[in-house]
């Protein structure tokens, strides 16, 4: 019976037309997830920076765009040099950086323990997740007027903006990372005699640490955005304040110079956190 079945199906198969063949796509630089040669990769990176820069040079040199709209690179450089020499750039940069350290630092101090709590205990999740999930959708910049009413025009309202803008995201991201700690690792630790606190300290936190640093790195970028927004509104120093001042006098070259400085500091922070992450997370590589 089995043999008959095999025979019959073989018969039927003989009448089938051959399956159509597909032409195969050739390997190119755009084959999914294929490594690129080092030279090609470098060329692409350099190009992505050089092309916009060349456009900038051409547009401003030919006078196609007036200098008040788009200052020449040279003008930006000298404006930056001027600010650096007078010392105001250093003061502004430090004022802004300090605000980030204070506001975002506070947010990290609150969000990391809270996130660990939420990721570890169902009670923590039930108590905080809905509230924080809602709060994070309220735009921090919309709080600026309210915070000025509550806290005045000084430093506290700026620190508070940074805090509000980053604390909720960092909490939820930390909680997610902590929830990713494998159950088996926690179970096996109990069978090795670890108590609850020891499991938290010696297993959950070390496993989650690289992921937590990743979360901090992402949110540090957000913090850097919020601080400039906060300074645009009302301040007497800081990079955001410098932009507003320059705008009042149509000093576009100064605005550009400040933007470059903001970019450079931001990238520096990012690279530093990447290095820490690579060191702490060597085991995961």
């Amino acid at each position: 019976m089995k043999a008959a079945l095999a025979e019959r199906s073989a018969d039927v198969r003989a009448t089938w037309p051959p399956l159509p063949r597909r032409t195969r796509s050739r390997r190119t630089a755009l084959t999914i997830r294929t490594p690129l040669s080092r030279r090609a990769a470098t060329a692409l990176t350099v190009g992505s920076l050089a092309v916009p820069f060349a456009c900038w040079v051409v547009l401003s040199a030919t006078g196609a765009v007036p200098a008040t709209f788009l200052p020449a690179p040279g003008a930006v450089l000298s404006a930056g040099w001027e600010m650096a020499r007078s010392g105001e750039l250093a003061v502004d940069a430090w004022t802004t950086t300090r605000r980030v350290l204070e506001g975002f630092g506070l947010a990290v101090l609150v969000s990391v323990p809270l996130g660990i709590l939420m990721g570890t205990f169902h009670a923590g999740q039930a108590a905080f997740e809905p509230v924080i999930g809602l709060l994070r959708y309220l735009p921090a910049s919309a709080f600026i007027p309210l915070l000025i009413i509550w806290l005045g025009l000084g430093e506290p309202s700026k620190i508070a903006i940074l805090f509000i803008g980053t604390v909720f995201f960092n909490t939820l991201m930390t909680a997610d990372v902590v929830r990713g700690v494998p159950r088996a690792l926690i179970d096996v630790s109990y069978t090795l005699g670890a108590r609850r606190g020891e499991v938290l300290r010696k297993v959950v936190v070390p496993h989650a640490l690289p992921g937590i640093i990743d979360a901090v790195r992402v949110n540090a970028a957000a913090a850097w955005n919020f601080v400039v927004v906060a300074e645009l509104v009302n301040s007497t120093a800081g990079l955001g304040y410098r932009i507003v001042r320059a705008q009042r006098f149509l000093q576009t070259d100064k605005i550009f110079a400040v933007l470059v400085v903001i970019g450079v500091i931001g990238v520096t922070i990012d690279v530093a956190l990447r290095l820490v992450r690579a060191r702490v997370g060597r085991w995961a590589a």
């Binding site: 494998p182 088996a184 690792l185 179970d187 096996v188 109990y190 069978t191 090795l192 005699g193 297993v203 070390p206 496993h207 085991w283 995961a284």
Partner: peptide, 17 residues
Amino acid sequence: PGPDRGLVFQTGSLYPW
């Protein structure tokens, strides 16, 4: 749970760090 009953799973229960 306690250390008087040691447990070994099929895979992946070592501390990777």
